[in-house]
Design a protein around this nucleic acid. Sequence first.
RNA 1: GGAGAGGUGGGUGAGUGGCUGAAACCAAUAGUUUGCUAAACUGUCGUAGGGGUUAAACUCUACCGGGGGUUCGAAUCCCCCCCUCUCCGCCA
Length: 424
Amino acid sequence: MLQLQVLRDESAKIIDGLAKRYFKDAAEIVSKVLEKDKAKRALQTQIQEEETKLNGESKRVGDLMKAGKQDEATSLRNQIAQSKETAKDNNEKLKALDKELTDLLYKIPNVPAAIVPAGKTPEENKVEYEHGTIPTLHEGALPHWELIKKYDIIDFDLGIKIAGAGFPVYKGKGAKLQRALINFFLSDADKAGYIEMQPPIVVNEASGYGTGQLPDKEGQMYFINEDGLYLIPTAEVPITNLYRDVMVNEADLPIKNAGYTPCFRREAGSWGAHVRGLNRLHQFDKVEIVQITKAENSYQTLEEMSLHVQDLLEKLELPYRKLLLCGGDMGFNSAMTYDFEVFSAAQQRWLEVSSVSNFETFQANRLKLRYKNKEGKTQLLHTLNGSALALPRIVAAILENNQTPEGIKIPKVLVPFTGFEWIM
RNA sequence: GGAGAGGUGGGUGAGUGGCUGAAACCAAUAGUUUGCUAAACUGUCGUAGGGGUUAAACUCUACCGGGGGUUCGAAUCCCCCCCUCUCCGCCA
């Protein structure tokens, strides 16, 4: 959620920025916000004046009673009772206005950073960097959904039997490969100074609001009705919410956390031919990195985090490219996002494996995540996160790109974690 | 699932109707002094918002888990809800 104060001070700049997202009716919603805000403040001033008067009168009643002037006290009391009625009405109006205002604010996405290109579709994302060579596969090379059957390492049918489509069962070396990747990602994050967290994989409603999944995106999360809990779509939610309503000590900044969790996504309505196999799942594993920084450091941190992701991909020897997302392709909460895609040789397409974003104060505003600066002023912090990395598409790329007639070669860096060099 | 206790500022914690936006302590911060990797002393220090000012000063309002009620007046009394803790039960 954007800060109201910023909307007041820089509404033109915000409308300009939102144009890069092709966010509909930006100008209209912003002007509505300002209008409601103005009305609210006017009403508030009025209420406050009334309340000042009432407070003074109440005090006088007490004084009169103490002085033994019962009659005067009684008549003043009756007088107060009347003005209280109007005060009550006005307070209700104020509440209604405030809710309308908040609802409007919820609808406004984050303002893209200055360097984010305008654009509506993924085609307008900017390729910032490419690394690695795309392998040429042998005759008869297979896509990963065939390879997993050939080597019997991931079983979709078993998953369907016990849960449903999109919940695969990892078997034998397939399961070990998962575990190896998770360990590799976590140990690299550890070396980079991220404190590992193992959070719950369900969160309450307040947490959903804190990181911006709610309102509006409840349809994308699994919900446990009986207990009012959501299955997390990413570790971003529980880990970032660890710092909800927290006043951070300046000395503790930046905060760096990493966590492995399974992630659950309903992906309602997003299935099709291009999401075969591991390309899209309801449950998948991911190691997430999260940082909380002062405003002045967040963009430098964004670069640091994307270098961390690049390093992982290079160690895994996967050809990848780094994209700067255009306004229209960015998530609602983000001010700037880099996506990382690996090339899947058998499918002949790029697969998104990581997304690294700076949310600036958009989440912190909701989270009330702040610190006191040297002047003693309370300041919102910036939140950032990134996948480092999401497993399924990495697995898909490893299987496809590293396949040989003899079997699938495990990347060197993973062998200490898997305990085997080949899947055959 | 049953019974009980409790939710107060960055933290611990006092406060049962007006003198309480809230004692005390800790943390933080500014300074003084002595000095040597620190102590002592003094000051400041909740959040959000309105008015006001070039900016301050100043001033007002709300907020003691959330919502409602009683009252001229509520952190304090009443009702509902949420959450946490303890004991019992069940159980990895």
